[in-house]
Design a binder for these strands. Structure first.
Lengths: 349, 349
DNA sequence: GGCTGGCACTCGGTAGAATCGAGTGCTAAC
DNA sequence: GTTAGCACTCGATTCTACCGAGTGCCAGCC
């Protein structure tokens, strides 16, 4: 976490510039307005005059940290400015009230994993006033605990598979022949024998031997097999999408952001990409999606026993309240890990 | 003013007024602007002069069908005006292209019910440019086909229940004692014996006899029981929520509508309320939600074999394109019914 | 040499006045 | 009952003046 490089860091500013930049960013985050030299100068930890601030600002602008909407206006941070700000943010702590709120939530929350994640997403969004994303773990490393074929009617069977992480999938089969109870039960038995204990990703196609039971088994395995790569599509929970309406101005921006959020797979890939790149905050263009260039995304991985088990994220405007939002995301991700991880360790206590 | 005092027909207008009203509504839907007398007069099926139109408009305004944003502006339809318009709409037919699009979609769509419904929702939204809602059937009348208790570990069991309509539910149990494979299997057997063939709504609590198997069975039944009333929460699919951003002007309205859409249970109750009241279109205040007073909602029930099996809906501004939207919702609901109903009848053909 | 107070300058935002024109209501004539 | 004509209304648009927040620059000061 302490990343404070010793090496000759390219983008390091002397202390005064840094605090001026910080003041500009802070104030702009609060007011959404361009920030002038005088209000910076009157800020608490700036001891120089506005004229000095001005000349430093010129330099900060030249270096790409600040921008001027037009001459004779104050300065606005660029993405690079936000980046510096975030990188040098001493990680904040959650306020007492919010701390309390999170603890209370996790003390009382009940229900299936999906319900918990969905409610967590709402909680996070409500705490921060930003749109939140909660990703459940992908189950590619879960093994199959049970695989049952249920006869709905002669032409419809349902393959219900339970995985060791508690997730359940279903697949309908519609064989071109009639299936009676016994055939189905036999296929179910064979499937169980075949699949229990294996990983989803190592399920292999089974050749059909020609009779109905074998055909059912083959179809069932094929269905499972086909699902494997897309398995995590169902564990995305987006909370507070209405927040985008007041986080951004300009209807067009709102539309674009909403439209991205609708494509859940896109959101998943964005978050996973960030995790992969070790980013906890993506500002503006950093997230790689053109329509999200005025957004900032915060992610916090959820880690249980050292293994990645999902993530929580927040999406807001680039001028979002990073400290609070990061603190909230961090706290929630930790509680989430404890909530599910703690459960697992039940046996150990 | 001698005002045509024949019969006090509450809600019927003479032919001329009707066509003027229709012209105003149509044009306002197209242009989103107040409509003036002259453009109405020049409309194809109005043969009188603008002066006459004006005097009729005064009368329509007095009767509550039209309103004036301010003196010296054109007229805008009131909710009552839209209502009249919709009630007297000769039901439109879908354009060829869209017809084609729907047929193609349903010819190619694959996967579980939920996937189909979700994609249907996207289709509908894409066709109409409005936000769409697709409700899956509630399964209160489905009976239990299978109920299996899977041992995840000593302290976690998962109750997986399959219903005759193909839906699957899961409930985790965390008993305060350790459960071994045999206990779990025995409980599973008992549950099957107890539950198969019964309706969810008629599942009754079971008293515990004290041993672990019985306790598991009791907990499992209790979990199922607790779920019963809220069971349909999972079958709501909202497509194209980004459309609200361009359907409404005013960020605040957008926010409110999005915020309603986030509460899926609310949306469900809205749609179900409309179905119950036999409404296919709710205009403005008719939908009963204050924040949706500038919205219109269209619903079309999905009926399979005479039984209600869900619904599709569209949400747009009160000045939405009713004819097209109703045609689309109708067509999609019918295709949906055929898609699932046709499947069911497989055996009969 | 770096900081500062002072100052001329810039330019977006706002307020007020003038204008435009779409649309109305009314009335007299057909 | 319908219509042409006309005076009138009032939001929208344009223009102008002006204010003031904020800048860049410079001369003087520590």
């Amino acid at each position: 976490m302490a990343r404070r490089a010793t090496a000759p860091v390219v983008n390091d500013l002397d202390a005064r510039k840094a605090s001026i930049l910080e003041a500009v960013v802070s104030e702009h985050i609060d007011t959404a307005q361009p920030v002038g030299s005088s209000s910076v100068a009157s800020s608490s930890d700036i001891v120089v005059s506005s004229a000095t601030v001005r000349s430093e600002m010129v330099s900060l602008e030249r270096e790409g940290y600040l921008a001027q909407p037009h001459t004779s206006a104050g300065r606005v941070p660029t993405d690079k400015g936000y980046r510096y700000f975030v990188d040098h943010l001493k990680s904040g702590v959650l306020g007492d009230v919010q701390q309390q709120q999170v603890s209370e939530f996790f003390a009382n929350v009940r229900g299936e994993v999906e319900d918990v994640l969905e409610q967590t997403s709402m909680l996070l969004s409500q705490m921060t006033h930003y749109t939140s994303v909660v990703l459940g773990a992908t189950l590619s490393h879960a093994s199959i605990l049970s695989s049952q074929l249920v006869n709905i009617d002669a032409h419809h069977q349902l393959l219900v598979t339970v995985f060791s992480d508690g997730s359940v999938t279903k697949h309908s089969l519609t064989p071109p022949f009639e299936v009676d109870y016994e055939t189905c039960a036999e296929a179910s038995r064979q499937l169980n024998a075949l699949l229990i204990g294996t990983l989803l990703e190592s399920v292999v196609q089974v050749p059909s031997r020609g009779d109905h039971v074998a055909a059912l088994v083959r179809d069932a395995v094929a269905a499972l097999h086909a699902q494997a790569p897309t398995v995590d599509g169902d564990k995305v929970f987006i909370g507070g999408s209405s927040r985008v309406a007041d986080a951004f101005d300009g209807v067009e921006t709102v539309r674009q952001v909403l439209s991205i959020l609708e494509q859940e797979l896109l959101v998943v890939s964005l978050v996973e990409d960030m995790l992969k790149r070790g980013l906890s905050v993506a500002i503006g263009a950093e997230n790689g999606f053109e329509p999200l260039s005025t957004c900032a995304v915060i992610v916090a991985p959820v880690t249980i026993d050292g293994a990645p088990a999902g993530a929580v994220g927040l999406l807001g405007p680039t001028r979002m309240k990073y400290r609070e939002a990061m603190a909230a995301a961090g706290a929630v991700s930790q509680h989430l890990a404890r909530h599910f991880g703690g459960d697992e360790e039940h046996a150990e206590h």
